[in-house]
Nucleic acid binder design. Sequence first.
DNA 1: CGAGTCGTTGAAAGAATTCAACTTGTGTGG
DNA 2: CCACACAAGTTGAATTCTTTCAACGACTCG
Lengths: 225, 225
Amino acid sequence: MPEPLCNLDSCFLCKHCMSEWKELIAIKKKTLLLKKGTLIFKEGSPVEGIFFLTEGAVKVYKQWGEERELIVRFAKAGDVLGHRGLGGKNLYPISATCLEDSKACYIPNNFLEATLQANPAFTYRLLQLYAGELQKAEQRMHDLALMEVRGRIALALQEIATLFGIDPEGYISISITRQDLASYAGTTYETVFKFFTDLIAQQIITTTGKRIKINKAPALQKFIG
Amino acid sequence: MPEPLCNLDSCFLCKHCMSEWKELIAIKKKTLLLKKGTLIFKEGSPVEGIFFLTEGAVKVYKQWGEERELIVRFAKAGDVLGHRGLGGKNLYPISATCLEDSKACYIPNNFLEATLQANPAFTYRLLQLYAGELQKAEQRMHDLALMEVRGRIALALQEIATLFGIDPEGYISISITRQDLASYAGTTYETVFKFFTDLIAQQIITTTGKRIKINKAPALQKFIG
DNA sequence: CGAGTCGTTGAAAGAATTCAACTTGTGTGG
DNA sequence: CCACACAAGTTGAATTCTTTCAACGACTCG
């Protein structure tokens, strides 16, 4: 069996899609380069395949009216994108936009379905992935419905720090706007702002430009618990 | 091929699990009878199988503290229960309780996994089911986060009417407490109450005991739009 | 240099929850 | 059959929290 084509531990594709290796090489070689801000797919457009993100960061969100949006989740290297389109109407129920420069493999539906048939283990693994995402989605549903705003913002910070990690200086390894944070926590820009002012005053967090550092995780936790 | 064992059009099991028919008959014969109010499974307990609901109605919910809960979804005849436990830690992330007398088939994990291996079509179909539920979960996440309370209550009424149908007299075919409605809409009992008072005053809905009838669907829709 | 946008802050308005009181209904024991 | 107690249903008022609005300052781009 050939070596995996990327060094990513979490590359779903390399780890679980061994059966169609030749085609996989072809797909890997056509890795898409996506600039920060690129719209990968848009709510309502037809689904023709799914994406495996191999590098970067992406926000997955739903829009409401012209102004408001809810960020459903963030995706990082190793995550799968657009797989919700599989069942039903074959229209993307959500949009996805790059938060940083990113790389992704695009798997057209016909190849995906061939793989699903030829490789039951892959299908089963994908099933588990879905089950996990369902759990996360329902947890998040719960958080958005029952927690109060400041708790949701604190939780958002914590989750983003865990997901994208922190750099050697202690800053969260992704630059995220207050607007995106608000969209993730299901609140408004100003509310995030005022809460940040509080957090900074209490030295629970520090900001340098758009970089955020969590100084006192336990204090942050208190807003969540 | 033998005839299906239940007349349910939407019985996922009969429609998609043809490969292990003998065992299926055995399972079908052991259909569980569940009285109204029965706790089918509880958050945090180990997953040993999944349920196919063949009759009745079930609420699937998460608890928070001792008092509050969020109803994640309702399940009716034909729906699958407990399948979120598949991936990960093998602990139920949610609880499920019967809203009415119900019937369900229980599929132990070992039989389920044998079926998944022997019957790729079944696995694929399950995958699509998951994708559909993910879409619904994310839509609901969006609704809970961005809509205001009265809109969420109106939407809850609409969804429940669609899901469980209406009887010949026009009443929603399930008796649901205001508390459950509040738990589904992510709000409090009293708020549902006050909104109901409004709706009844405007003759948008009528109630007789615990039965609810929607008289003016368009007027209800206005709170949602 | 000016205009405009973005970031920041305070004050007011609005919405929902909480609290508390009151009413209705139900079941039990006399 | 009645009286009482307790639980459930119902309503109003006040508090709390969040959003919205509006204004100000800073920074950027033309």
